[in-house]
Every structure is written in structure tokens, then in C-alpha cells.
């Protein structure tokens, strides 16, 4: 099938700029990037429908090929409205982030860093424990909960 270069090039620009923007930390720019990517994706869908044609409003004597392809149009229509919902949701996140932290930037996940830097020693697995020769120890002597072990790990660190 014939390929329309204008549509493809514009789509390429939209994707390129969109990706450039979502790789930023500013949430507003990320949101704008997403909007551009959506537009690019819609253009991609549109160009798969082939060359321009009649509006897909059924007429009795019109051959099916002369319509502009209706299937991609239905998909795009869905996509346009969904992307509005996504934009609204992003806006809510940006506002929330601003109210809570006075910033609209994507933060690094500190928990991930903590996981990556945790020590390999874990009292639950690695602490030396004395051999026991009876099961009938009074409970308070034998109390070793995970919490006390964690405390021990912290101390030994």
C-alpha cells in the first residue's frame, strides 16, 4: 500500500519529542510528553488506514474501498478519550505532589536504594545460636522474636 510520508514524519516527531519529555524529572513535562505520544500513536493508527477517503457514513451505492478506513478511526476515538482521562489523572498527581511536597518532580524511590544497600548479615539467618538440649525452657528465656533479631542486626552493623 502507498505510504504517506507526511503522516509518518509528523508521527516520528511527536514520538521523539514525547519520549524526550517523559525522560525528564518535571512531572508537568512528563504529562505533556505523554500527551504528545498519544497524538503520535493516533497518527500512526490513522496512517495505517490508508489514503484519505470519504467520511465513513454509509451510503447505499458507495463501494467500501472509497471510505476512509473506519476501524482505525474507532480505535483512535477510544484512544482520544482515554488519553484525556490519563491527562486528568496526571494533573491530579501533579497537584497532589505540589500540595504535599511543593515540587512537581519525579522522586527516586528511596526504598529501592535501601534494598540495594542492605547488609548481607541477617540475624535470622546468620547469627550464631547456642545448642539447646531441652524443649522445656520457660518461654521468657526463649523469647526470640524477629523484632529482637532485627534490633540485634542493627547493633551489629
Amino acid at each position: 500500500m502507498t505510504v504517506n510520508l507526511t503522516l509518518l514524519l509528523v508521527m516520528g516527531v511527536l514520538f521523539a519529542v514525547g519520549v524526550y519529555l517523559i525522560l525528564e524529572r518535571s512531572l508537568t513535562r512528563v504529562m505533556l510528553g505523554l500527551m504528545l505520544i498519544t497524538n503520535g500513536a493516533n497518527l500512526l493508527l490513522l496512517s495505517t488506514g490508508g489514503p484519505a477517503g470519504l467520511a465513513p457514513i454509509f451510503g447505499m451505492d458507495v463501494p467500501a474501498e472509497t471510505y476512509s478506513d473506519p476501524l482505525p478511526q474507532a480505535l483512535i476515538l477510544t484512544s482520544i478519550v482515554i488519553s484525556f482521562a490519563v491527562t486528568a489523572f496526571m494533573l491530579a498527581i501533579i497537584y497532589r505532589s505540589w500540595v504535599l511536597g511543593r515540587q512537581d518532580e519525579v522522586q527516586d524511590d528511596i526504598e529501592d536504594r535501601r534494598v540495594a544497600n542492605q547488609p548481607t548479615f541477617d540475624a535470622e539467618d546468620d547469627a550464631e545460636i547456642p545448642a539447646e538440649t531441652t524443649e522445656f525452657v520457660p518461654p521468657d528465656e526463649a523469647e526470640e522474636t524477629p523484632a529482637t533479631n532485627r534490633a540485634r542486626t542493627e547493633r551489629e552493623k
Binding site: L46, G49, A52, G53, L54, A55, P56, Y67, S68, Q73, I76, L77, I80
Partner: peptide, 9 residues
């Protein structure tokens, strides 16, 4: 969209 023949879009 309009000139492509997609008035709904």
C-alpha cells in the same frame, strides 16, 4: 483528521 475523512475524530 478532518481532511483525512474522519469527522468523528
Amino acid at each position: 483528521f478532518a481532511i483525512q475523512g474522519a469527522p468523528d475524530l
